[in-house]
């Protein structure tokens, strides 16, 4: 942590300093141009819209998880949370409970999951990696238990609208995605609470000794993260029309990759909501573009991993160069 602090913040008095986020945007545009030129279908409205709809539930979770990570913690249980929410939503719909109530209940459950994670980390004092890797497995296990390992059909007008509805021709998940990102952006860049999140991530002790309730700040980010994952789970259920205990499996790593790609530091204190947005877009464009080019899925996985490592490696190299 201390090491991290010394490394960062050295950016000063450099005339041509291009921020990491700008670099990422350039990478994104380059990829976009590349796929537009090489694939006939990539640039079609249909493809772009469906790509963004599909990434929107990930993006919502990523935006809020970025706040958790800037505060210096992490939440691995988001994937398990998505699976559990999806199963619970489908079972509730199946038992005839109205859609709007299912929605509220599931979001409340998401909050409760966040409360539990936050309690483990801030009150009990368990390291957040250990705590949430543990609860990740618990949520997933509960999802399998409740559904008996099967998929449950979830057809209800309210739930349907969440993932597949449109407002003035714009898919509803995209609208949600934009709203969540905008809110997170305002919180992190303009609000008092966002300032506290950054301060706590940069130096929890100095923040505590300045009268900031460090535990409360972190706790609240966990609760919001649980809520965001539940919303993501609901959208995913809606998109696929079924509640499945496998929903969101492995998603935590994809989302964390996107956040790291976007320049957020694992140690906390450093990161940008817009960076995460770019990170998510890069990973999605890569996946979508390569699929359009008929690249074998196994190879796409290699490409995604390679991009993450390559980009984060350039951050380190740039950081070292800046220090000299």
């Amino acid at each position: 942590m201390a090491h991290n602090q010394e490394e960062a913040g050295v950016k000063k008095e450099k005339k041509f300093y291009i921020s990491n986020t700008v670099t990422l945007v350039i990478v994104l545009i380059a990829m976009f141009v590349f796929f537009s030129l090489t694939s006939t279908h990539f640039l079609s409205t249909y493809n772009i819209v469906s790509m963004i709809s599909n990434l929107s539930f990930m993006g919502i979770v990523a935006a809020v998880l970025t706040m958790v990570m800037i505060s210096g913690e992490i939440d691995f249980s988001i994937g398990g949370n998505i699976g559990l929410t999806s199963v619970v939503a489908a079972i509730l719909v199946d038992s005839g409970i109205p859609g709007w109530l299912v929605l509220i209940l599931c979001l409340l459950m998401g909050c409760a999951i966040g409360v539990f994670n936050g309690f483990l980390v801030t009150v009990v004092g368990v390291n957040s990696i250990i705590a949430t890797v543990g609860t990740m497995s618990v949520w997933r296990g509960l999802a399998y238990t409740f559904s008996d390992g099967r998929s449950v059909l979830a057809v209800d007008p309210v739930i349907d609208f969440l993932g597949r509805g449109n407002i003035v021709n714009i898919p509803f998940p995209i609208i949600l995605f934009i709203i969540v990102f905008a809110l997170c952006y305002v919180v992190m860049n303009q609000s008092k609470w966002g300032r506290k999140i950054y301060a706590v991530g940069v130096n929890p002790m100095a923040s505590f000794l300045s009268g900031i309730n460090v535990k409360q700040v972190k706790f609240l980010t966990f609760v919001l993260c649980g809520l965001a994952a539940a919303l993501g789970g609901l959208i995913l259920t809606s998109l696929s029309m079924v509640g499945m205990p496998q929903h969101g499996q492995g998603l935590e790593l994809t989302i964390i990759s996107a956040i790291l790609l976007g320049g957020t530091a694992l140690g906390g204190g450093k990161g940008q909501i817009l960076g995460t947005l770019t990170g998510i877009l890069i990973l999605s464009v890569l996946l979508n573009g390569l699929t359009m080019l008929d690249v074998y899925y196994y190879h796409i996985q290699i490409a995604q991993g390679a991009v993450l490592v390559a980009v984060v490696a350039t951050y380190e190299v740039r950081q070292k160069r800046l220090q000299q």
Partner: peptide
């Protein structure tokens, strides 16, 4: 450095931290 300042943040953020 350890207990007093959020070193990566600016002068302004540190002055108003409390």
């Amino acid at each position: 450095k350890m207990d007093g300042l959020a070193l990566m943040l600016g002068v302004k953020e540190n002055i108003t931290l409390a």
